[in-house]
Computed example of a mutant assay.
Amino acid sequence: MKGFLLSCLCLLLLSTSLHAAKVDTLEILSPAMYRSFKCVVITPAAYDKDKTQRFPVVYLLHGHGGNYANWIRNVPAISGLADAYQMMIVCPDGNVGSWYLDSPVDSSWKFETYVGKEIPAYIDSHYRTRAQKQYRAITGLSMGGHGALFLAIRHPDVFGAAGSMSGGVDLRPFPRNWDLAKRLGTIEDHRENWNNYSVINIAYQLKDSVLALIIDCGVKDFFSNVNRNLHQQLLQQGVTHDYIERPGEHNWDYWSNSVLYQLLYFHRFFDKQETAKN
């Protein structure tokens, strides 16, 4: 399957090689945090050719210790997929370890507000997007996988589809890792925060078919168990979702392959919205 997908990708990239997508880096202000952060915005070549055409958007989040440029630097093929799938791809900055939360213990950290509300509003007001939730998706790796599901569940009016690649979907097993205590307080003193800000604990809010979901994780990833637990919970709730395990670890070899599947999933999701309209 992986070889077939890569072959299809090569054909898609070849077909769009004469009309390359445009990759811009800009700064987007967060009124909630009174500062700006950089962001990569990828627009397909058709964006500048047809000034009447509007495009769906995929928000692609980085992991802990990363930044806005990680995806385009490590997987430059995503710009070709923006062309092939006629979509915009937006890579916000979630700082080193925001976990895409509005921290309940540090009011200066409002990355749920920034990435979940302020950035989509900015992109919709400055670009020709299809500004309805059914044409807006969000996914990410590791910390960004958690962030994507967390934001999509908390803001069902903003996102119609969401994904996670190797996501830290349950924060509670990792109380000493990745700046989590700085964002949530220690688990001993603030256990309620750890419960309320873990994806697996808010997934009960999901109703079937309200949010299109794709979740994957490598079998040798240290987040594999928490992803399996989330999968089982969604099955018990009757929430339709795609769940994939494949060989792989918590690294760019895995994510550079995983993102191909996820962008295809979102492309098909956007196409279904068009079919339903016609």
Rank of each mutant, 00 (worst) to 15 (best):
D189V: 07
V219S: 07
I215D: 00
V169G: 13
D157N: 01
N196G: 03
A203Y: 14
D216T: 00
D216G: 04
R176I: 12
G144Y: 06
G160P: 12
C217E: 02
S198T: 10
A148C: 02
G140P: 03
H146D: 05
W178M: 10
N193V: 11
H146V: 11
G140E: 07
P175S: 04
V219K: 03
P175M: 00
T139Q: 05
W178H: 15
L141V: 10
K207T: 03
C217L: 03
Y135I: 01
A152Y: 00
L213C: 02
A152M: 01
R136L: 08
D216F: 00
G147I: 03
V169R: 08
L180E: 10
Q134T: 02
S209D: 14
N195Q: 14
A162Q: 15
S198V: 10
T186D: 10
L211Q: 11
P173I: 06
H190A: 07
T186I: 09
I215P: 02
P175V: 01
G163H: 11
G167W: 05
I138S: 04
H146Q: 00
R176H: 05
R172C: 08
N196W: 15
K207Y: 05
S164R: 14
Q134F: 02
L213H: 05
L171E: 00
R183L: 12
I153N: 15
M143Y: 02
L211G: 03
M143Q: 07
K182E: 13
G144L: 02
L149V: 14
G218V: 04
N201M: 02
R154C: 13
G168Q: 05
V210T: 11
K182H: 15
G218Y: 01
S198I: 04
F150K: 06
A161E: 07
G147L: 10
R154K: 15
M165C: 10
Y197M: 01
H190W: 03
W194V: 13
G160M: 12
A137P: 06
A137F: 00
A181F: 02
L171H: 09
L171T: 03
A203G: 09
Y204P: 07
E188M: 04
D157K: 13
N177Q: 10
V158S: 05
N177K: 15
W194Y: 14
I214L: 07
C217P: 06
Q134A: 14
L213T: 04
H155S: 13
G160I: 11
F174L: 00
T139N: 12
A203D: 08
A152I: 04
I187F: 04
Y204K: 13
L206K: 07
I187H: 09
V219R: 06
N193Q: 14
Q134K: 15
L171R: 12
K220Q: 15
G140R: 10
N177T: 08
L180Q: 02
H155E: 12
G218F: 01
I214D: 08
A203L: 02
L211P: 04
I153K: 12
S166Y: 00
H155T: 09
S142E: 08
D157F: 04
R154W: 14
